Deep mutational scan, measured.
Amino acid sequence: MALNTPQITPTKKITVRAIGEELPRGDYQRCPQCDMLFSLPEINSHQSAYCPRCQAKIRDGRDWSLTRLAAMAFTMLLLMPFAWGEPLLHIWLLGIRIDANVMQGIWQMTKQGDAITGSMVFFCVIGAPLILVTSIAYLWFGNRLGMNLRPVLLMLERLKEWVMLDIYLVGIGVASIKVQDYAHIQAGVGLFSFVALVILTTVTLSHLNVEELWERFYPQRPATRRDEKLRVCLGCHFTGYPDQRGRCPRCHIPLRLRRRHSLQKCWAALLASIVLLLPANLLPISIIYLNGGRQEDTILSGIMSLASSNIAVAGIVFIASILVPFTKVIVMFTLLLSIHFKCQQGLRTRILLLRMVTWIGRWSMLDLFVISLTMSLINRDQILAFTMGPAAFYFGAAVILTILAVEWLDSRLLWDAHESGNARFDD
């Protein structure tokens, strides 16, 4: 018995066209964080690309023209004298008006014999932002004059995390709450300039795509075929072959399989920071003279006294001054041990922890910024005066060393310790 099946006739004509040209192939790229070699397709503007294995951002879609970056830099340069030299806060102490600005706080630190601690604050609040705007201006002028731009481009990517104007702005709020127990506070004209400078700096850093600047100024022929001998440069993120001198053909720094002496430098910085954190938390970090009496505060006791007036601000200072430094030390110690013992479990967790400490590390400088600003506000000789204690130097040095330890660690070593050939990683 035959089955009668109805015929289905399409209502619209289906047209099949042959592909007349070869589909576009992607360029081969190595991930600078996990060293995976993959094919990167062509990316349009405002599109980002991520590593298929570790999800690290390979290409950032946010990109401004150099002219727009230069305009932002010149605007920031105009704001800087007002943000640093004009009063941020006014207080009335014992019937006398006192003005506080950024430069005055750094000068008070240096004047009291601790120039190293003052230079830490100076670099993060004044030096690094000033280098940022002058570097962008150098790129703008240098591109037109045919100057060598490689050193500036190499420095810009590392400079971003040292620009800490946003953290200093939080420190202004913390210092205001600490001082309000002794005097009446009012915002100064410099505060508005400083807030504007923070906003412009944040926007500029978020749109400063150094890798795209490398592509514009020093374009290189990408690798179009897969080759395990391809290496990625950690300076400019170019994937290719080393030249005859073993250097990256684009930025001219040595092109090595792994960062040289990464573990040794990381261990040295980490152990030194552990040693410095002990006096930083045991010795007094601030000293207040009130009517001839002397009151010393460690980091913890200062947080407890701050909690009596504002528990939320005390929580912020606790996280930045105690929780973050010790968390960074514990995480980095764990990561280094996992590399030495070739741990194969929990790779995803370790990668996330490394990215976390990379982002939060700079916030530990908050305590030094609060001390710097408070020193310029309260300084009335023996009637009422505020000065920093010996722990300030140890704390600042420990924070900087932990930042350097994270920067010096080559994250690809975590993958080397893991089993080879993993296309995915999980716990």
Rank of each mutant, 00 (worst) to 15 (best):
A280M: 13
A272Q: 02
A115V: 07
L255G: 09
R245W: 10
L94D: 00
N101H: 05
V198Q: 15
L23W: 06
I339C: 10
L306Q: 00
P87S: 06
G315C: 15
D410S: 00
L230F: 14
N209Y: 09
A268S: 11
A307E: 12
A223H: 13
Q55L: 06
A183R: 00
V232N: 14
V331I: 11
T202Y: 15
V133G: 03
T204C: 11
G113Q: 11
V203L: 14
E211Y: 14
V174Q: 01
L145W: 08
L366N: 07
I303S: 13
D381L: 01
L230V: 14
G396K: 00
D181F: 01
L234P: 11
D27C: 11
R225L: 13
T327K: 13
R62A: 09
L78T: 06
G389W: 00
D35R: 02
A83S: 06
F194M: 14
I371M: 03
K57E: 08
Y289D: 01
V195R: 00
L290E: 00
A196E: 06
G346K: 15
V203N: 13
F141K: 01
D27L: 07
G292M: 15
I14M: 06
S262N: 11
S364Y: 00
Y138R: 01
D297I: 04
D27H: 10
P249Q: 10
L69F: 10
P87C: 08
W415K: 10
M147N: 03
W64G: 06
L347H: 14
G173D: 01
I287T: 09
G246S: 11
H340M: 09
R412A: 01
I172V: 08
L145A: 09
E407I: 11
D166Q: 15
N379R: 12
T204Q: 10
P325F: 01
G190S: 03
L263G: 11
Q180D: 13
S176V: 11
Q345F: 14
P129I: 11
G95F: 08
A405I: 11
Y28W: 09
Q33Y: 10
D99R: 12
R294V: 05
Y138K: 02
R25H: 08
N310Q: 15
V313L: 15
F192A: 08
L149G: 10
A397R: 00
M332G: 09
I383Y: 03
I360A: 08
W107C: 11
D227I: 15
G118P: 04
L409A: 04
D427R: 13
M72A: 04
L384I: 05
L335G: 12
D416A: 12
L139Y: 03
R221H: 13
S420N: 07
W140D: 09
R68F: 09
Y289H: 04
W363Q: 03
I91F: 02
K57N: 04
Q55K: 08
G361A: 11
G361W: 01
A137W: 15
K12V: 04
L377S: 02
G146L: 03
D243M: 11
L373S: 04
C248K: 00
S176D: 05
V121K: 04
M388C: 04
L353D: 01
T134Y: 07
L40Q: 07
F341P: 12
A391Q: 02
A18Q: 09
W408H: 06
D427T: 02
T374I: 10
W92P: 01
V370L: 02
A137G: 13
I14W: 05
I58N: 05
H340P: 09
V370I: 05
L366Q: 04
Q295H: 15
L368W: 01
N310M: 09
Y168T: 05
P284M: 08
A196S: 13
A187P: 14
L77E: 04
T327C: 12
E419I: 11
A423N: 15
A100P: 09
V324H: 10
I185Y: 02
R53Q: 10
